[in-house]
Design a protein around this nucleic acid. Sequence first.
DNA 1: GATGAATGAGTGTTCATTCAT
DNA 2: CATGAATGAACACTCATTCAT
Lengths: 195, 195, 195, 195
Amino acid sequence: MRSGDVTFIQAARRAQIIGGAIEVVAELGWAKTSIRKIADHVGLAMSAVLYHFGSKDKLVEAIVEAMYAAAFDVVIPAIERETTASGKLAAYIRSNIAYFDTHRTHLAALTQISSEDLRLSDETAERVAALDPVAILAAGQADGEFGDFPPGSMAIALRGAVNAVVEKILRQPEFDARSYGEDLVRIFDKAVAAT
Amino acid sequence: MRSGDVTFIQAARRAQIIGGAIEVVAELGWAKTSIRKIADHVGLAMSAVLYHFGSKDKLVEAIVEAMYAAAFDVVIPAIERETTASGKLAAYIRSNIAYFDTHRTHLAALTQISSEDLRLSDETAERVAALDPVAILAAGQADGEFGDFPPGSMAIALRGAVNAVVEKILRQPEFDARSYGEDLVRIFDKAVAAT
Amino acid sequence: MRSGDVTFIQAARRAQIIGGAIEVVAELGWAKTSIRKIADHVGLAMSAVLYHFGSKDKLVEAIVEAMYAAAFDVVIPAIERETTASGKLAAYIRSNIAYFDTHRTHLAALTQISSEDLRLSDETAERVAALDPVAILAAGQADGEFGDFPPGSMAIALRGAVNAVVEKILRQPEFDARSYGEDLVRIFDKAVAAT
Amino acid sequence: MRSGDVTFIQAARRAQIIGGAIEVVAELGWAKTSIRKIADHVGLAMSAVLYHFGSKDKLVEAIVEAMYAAAFDVVIPAIERETTASGKLAAYIRSNIAYFDTHRTHLAALTQISSEDLRLSDETAERVAALDPVAILAAGQADGEFGDFPPGSMAIALRGAVNAVVEKILRQPEFDARSYGEDLVRIFDKAVAAT
DNA sequence: GATGAATGAGTGTTCATTCAT
DNA sequence: CATGAATGAACACTCATTCAT
């Protein structure tokens, strides 16, 4: 019971620190973010942050995991809700862009953090792989819903087109991400269509 | 003559340092690149690097300009060589990917540097804007070569799909970028086609 | 109690560093004084000094404040102890010179530091202003103790004459500052005397 | 003849550099003055400045000598023009202050440079010593013009009172140095007067 | 007579990390 | 659970000086 409480408090503190860290990164960019600034932002001593995460690398990992988790919460149910391949494809596009649109504080971190020698937990890596749209595309081809195209390349192009919205939003905050998403749905509908 | 010589060796040193810097960034990533490491890599004292560029910011600018220049050398002539919109579209895709494929040391820098508060020279910024594929797409629609689609969104998607190859190559060096490029040409040919 | 202890050891370290800094300045002069040398002198890491003061500017401020505080401790009570204008005048001269004579390590710093773009705390600036001998001189004229002379100019001359002892001591350490002080008392007694 | 020309050119360059250096110091303060900035200011390469002076210390010496020479030009003739001790005393005060008033670019350097481990040339040191007002005061006492006072202390006080104008002008550029000089003449006239 | 290139020592500052409490 | 003190390594940058030309 006691240890359960402790874990709960710890988890709350960790969540609080991660949230603060994402805000700091959003404001300052990754390069100018330091543990001290994160600690100041959440009102803790710098050493308290390290106490909870052990090292900066661990903190970064936790931040990334948290961002992925937030994305999974939006993307996975949206895709699973659909039954047809083209439904799943549209859901993939719309939910990804919805996540970017509603989690703008994550954006600065997302573009900059990926480059680091970042290691995802096995579980997260697995779920990331599961979200690769190549599976949707291949399924759509298998059941004749989609036409003929190289599914690997189409998946890379699709992910690139979806992720491109991040930079766009960052540079141009008033950019209408949702309607770009709708455009993307139509563009890729046509691109994968059976002839 | 004399002043020409001086400028020449100046330019040579600058080019040497820029080249070394790109290699260091390719190996370590931007975050872990420092002037000292660049200097060590090219066999100069750190202060010599600063002597030639004045400050780190100026050096970064020079590096970015050099990378853009290398890209322009490949991309611009390739597009100008074509006369039809679909020819230019294919050339845009192929030449961009060719640049990425042949300048792999530039890749790590390219993904990471964009986020910084990087300021391009007016000339480079102008040429970057001129390379936006939206112009090609709009022209193709105007002369009836292409069908109906939102050219702004299509351009963002296209750029995203093209740039996606960078991450792919970085994570998977044996990835066949050229054939991905050919796939892209076909995918976007279909996506922009008149119905 | 606990927080009192913390503040106490903080203050002690700060005082130790300030003291060491004054010694270093006394030995090397301001121009050749660096944080690193101060840290070495007190046996701390340079970063520990910065940990306690934040920046070199803040450290300099603290040093100056400390030197002024030491001067105030001597000068202010000495003047307040006197009731007549000529008594206060003599006390001003003697106590200033006594401070210079007994705080020789402060001297090198005092001559050099004034020029920097040094900003005193409001409180210190106020007390510095309060110590301007012009008030004493004007009061002495008002109650008829002193004769007629421009009090502003006399005050500048007086301060110059008093401060001149600093350079004298620095160049000629065996110089008898006290008897110079007594001479000054007589000289200015005559200079301000009613005719 | 040829070597005479060379020497002449050299002397001109040296004078030009010294003049520029004094201006730079006046603008930036001694701490922020560097050989490079002086060189830029006069439009030469940094190495050219060192070529002419050999080292920074030598340059500083030359600057100081130049400033002293400018002071001598004003002060020495003014004193020699007078025949009585009180005339010479007044001339000492007025000419020193006139020099400070008309050579304001020298002022910043004068306050800051003196502290360094500066060595005057034998000739300059000699002339500086010759200008010590103690000689004037002692002579005035010897011939009965002045009253009884310790001439050494009076000289120190006098120099201090005169030099005090430098700081005053620096902090308060509109300060009326000339009328302060007249006040000083009267103050010290009274202070040295025979009773 | 003058220069540009290059250097090594030094500067203040930031940072993630350790540790005793 | 959390902290403040302290550290060492790294950072960008400045500087006076040297040297071949």
